[in-house]
Design a binder for these strands. Structure first.
Lengths: 234, 234
DNA sequence: TCGTTTTATCTAACACTGTTAAAATTACGC
DNA sequence: GCGTAATTTTAACAGTGTTAGATAAAACGA
């Protein structure tokens, strides 16, 4: 027997469904996403899609996983492009790539971090590993920078609260558990700062306060780099 | 003529609709919100609600405006409770009140900052003034702290990028335009940092990295206070 | 008190949504 | 060509927001 052909066909159909879903999402926003609309555009009917996805939630989850991967690849590529430079420059590159991806794919980004579909409940155990991948890029840079002595930890980050240090022990088994606690901690707070700026910008909430959001973000990334203890370059 | 009675009755009906919407939202999440469900619980039918709200979007907008006000009041109260203390302590109180409100009202908070309803498009011109109110609490504290000399601005925040300084001029007319640029800037970046932490926590994305989110938040607020230049207390 | 007018609510209908069951079609191996 | 398994369709159910038109209720003037 030769199951390849049918299996491949099945995978292709899944991809086509996701692609049309993404197209609809891009054209009409989250409101335009519906099984019937996807099916119609593909020249079939809605119940037919149930042979490829158990429900629309499963489809959305698949889209989310893809988007997380896409974000991670964008971030990893940005890091790789400046891999020869120091940790500070790599972090700056990663931060801007992260924001760039969010601004270029606002619906996907809200899909990842805003759960804009009311009936949809994100299966965190499935999506979290995908979300973790981007985070690990940042954490790895911090880890390397700490090891190389590029970072002179300021007082407020030198000694972590004992509750937090303790919580790192629970990470055993997860990818990245071998990274030093300070790297994980600095990556977490950097992520949160980054994320806050991007979300407020995506929802047009910070533009009325700070008109030039590009300058704001660039300035804050630089401030972050200094505040975590990178010695000012040249 | 005596339009009071009818007008009051009309306002009461609007309030009752919003209250049942909030109850439904709290009980079943964003997916449970529907005109028919609201109407059924109130003992009437869905089209009847159209005499009080032009559409379900108008209703959601009203809920959002109320929620923004509620958040602002919580934040203002927290500030007022420690009004006699210094700026640093006031900021810490405000930050924790902000997070507390978000954690206690997750659906409302996502309504404000996550637009979880796909068909809903937020009329930013209407909602922004309400959103601004909480922000102004923080900005005012910074303004006062700067004026009183409580803040020794670090190098990265002393001289703002010219594009940003310029964008503040466009604020003329808006409430808060009389605040010094540094206060607005510091408030904006503080807001973003705060917001990022809260959002990641609400979506359970940061717990797998930092188990003790309470400690993380408290620690980061303290770090923020120092990094914006508050001289360490005692 | 009797109309009249305004306000409020209902019924019926339309075009959607996700989902299920059963029937019909297509494709594949023998 | 036949039988089996994989796909896809039709029909239906229970929802959704929304509109139009009829109906009920309240308020007002004579």
């Amino acid at each position: 027997m030769q199951p390849d052909r049918r299996d491949r066909r099945r995978l292709e159909a899944r991809e086509e469904i996701k692609d049309t879903a993404r197209a609809l999402l891009a054209e009409q926003g989250a409101a335009g996403l519906s099984l019937r609309a996807i099916a119609k555009r593909m020249g079939m009917t809605a119940p037919g899609l149930y042979h490829y996805f158990g429900s629309i939630n499963d489809l959305i989850t698949a889209l989310i996983l893809d988007a997380f991967t896409q974000l991670a690849e964008a971030v990893e590529k940005a890091d790789a492009d400046v891999a020869s430079r120091g940790g500070a420059e790599r972090l700056v590159a990663v931060a801007h790539a992260w924001r760039r991806w969010a601004l270029d794919h606002p619906i996907d980004f809200q899909l990842l971090y805003g759960s804009p579909i009311p009936t949809y409940e994100q299966p965190t155990d499935t999506t979290y590993p995908a979300a973790r991948r981007s985070f690990l890029v940042t954490a790895s840079i911090f880890a390397q920078a700490i090891e190389c002595g590029e970072i002179d930890l300021p007082e407020e980050y030198r000694r972590l609260p004992p509750e937090i240090a303790r919580s790192f022990d629970a990470l055993t088994g997860l990818e990245g558990h071998d990274l030093p606690p300070h790297a994980l901690y600095l990556a977490a707070i950097s992520w949160a700062r980054l994320h806050g700026h991007i979300m407020l910008e995506l929802f047009h909430l910070i533009q009325p306060v700070i008109g030039d959001v590009d300058a704001l973000f660039a300035h804050e990334v630089n401030a972050l780099i200094r505040q975590v203890g990178f010695t000012p370059s040249q």
